[in-house]
Write a protein that binds this DNA or RNA. Structure first.
Lengths: 205, 205
DNA sequence: GTCTATAAATAGATAGAC
DNA sequence: GTCTATCTATTTATAGAC
């Protein structure tokens, strides 16, 4: 039995992971399209092209499916943070992150979960990788927020945690959907509009 | 048969309306607590204290229940608009509306509906009173927005419709729930924080 | 109109053969 | 692991007596 860390995965293991990646990708799309409640496991299985029973061999519950999708998104976000130029001003780093978030949402890749569902919360918080990624992201953003406040770029009167929550909330901002439905603006314009209202506010300057 | 407009309702009619008001009030609370998908009709009936079949005599479907709750909220919002002092600056009128919205949400009185559900959308758009109230509210807010932009209070570069959507989005802002969960701020502080980030933005001024 | 009882449909999850 | 077929529970909605 091979337990070496980073050992070359066998062909079988590669196939398994590829299939699971396909599953999670499908779940991610469906969660973005319809949300957790409206997404059915039958639908996931049909969309992936396997039997529902097979799906349950990979993921023990619907909640675990959603958690896997969230882990995927968090990892993706975490990786994006690493691509941000360190020389950038903290506030510009934050803007870059929010812009990335908005683009993911417009691309139909941002899973939407009900924040009240307790079994779902349990699945999320019991996922070590999810919690780890979330903590790491929050730490990084928190550092940028405090730096931006110290540097006079961000309003220093706002509690950093409130700023962080406000940025996180952009990931599920319904304004994007509203504006797109209006059909008057391109995706790029929508992103910049929301970015502007988020950082500059509605008031004139 | 009495069809006179504004005719004095009979005792029976008053009882009927009182019961329906009790139903809608319960639905409103449950929609605020758990959202449309998680709310069950059984639950509504049990909470009101009547049989489910009786409930269906009043409202033909779950969607109609939710629509009735939304009509109630919209009427309430519409009535609030009338209480705003006409002498107030347009931007302050807008702030008053958003503040009211945030307070309703914190009071657990703001129903939350999935924006993607099509049967629900159909029930809403087929309700004349809902559509009428929404249009009237949007007209009023739209007028204030344009006046505030013309007066130099609101950023005139933002499309009025984007401003309107941004204000509407505060009615379901998850930041309220996040901040309350943190336990570090009172409800009043939370309201003012969100108001501040909405109108003044995150950036320093 | 209110009730009890039940229909009808759906969804999450499993059994068991291969 | 994948499949077909099924279970179990829940949910929306109704039938029918009173």
């Amino acid at each position: 039995m091979t337990i070496a860390v980073g050992a070359k995965p066998s062909f079988k293991e590669q196939m398994l992971q590829a299939r699971e990646e396909a599953i999670v990708q499908t779940v991610n799309r469906l969660l973005a399209e319809k949300g957790f409640d409206a997404m059915t496991v039958d639908e996931v299985a049909a969309s992936v092209g396997i039997a529902k029973a097979s799906l349950y061999k990979h993921f023990p519950s619907k909640e675990d499916l959603a958690a896997a999708a969230m882990v995927r998104v968090m990892r993706s976000a975490r990786e994006f943070l690493d691509t941000i130029a360190p020389a950038l001003a903290p506030v510009d780093k934050l803007k870059a992150v929010v812009r990335w978030t908005l683009q993911v949402q417009l691309a139909g890749q941002m899973p939407s979960l009900p924040s009240q569902n307790s079994s779902l919360r349990a699945a999320l918080t019991s996922s070590k990788e999810y919690v780890d990624q979330l903590l790491e992201i929050s730490d990084t953003l928190g550092g940028w927020i405090e730096a931006a406040q110290a540097g006079g770029a961000l309003n220093a009167k706002l509690p950093p945690i409130a700023v962080l929550y406000t940025l996180y909330a952009r990931a599920c901002d319904p304004v994007l959907e509203f504006l797109r439905g209006g059909g008057q603006h391109s995706d790029e314009e929508i992103v910049e509009l929301v970015l502007s209202t988020c950082f500059d506010g509605l008031n004139a300057r």
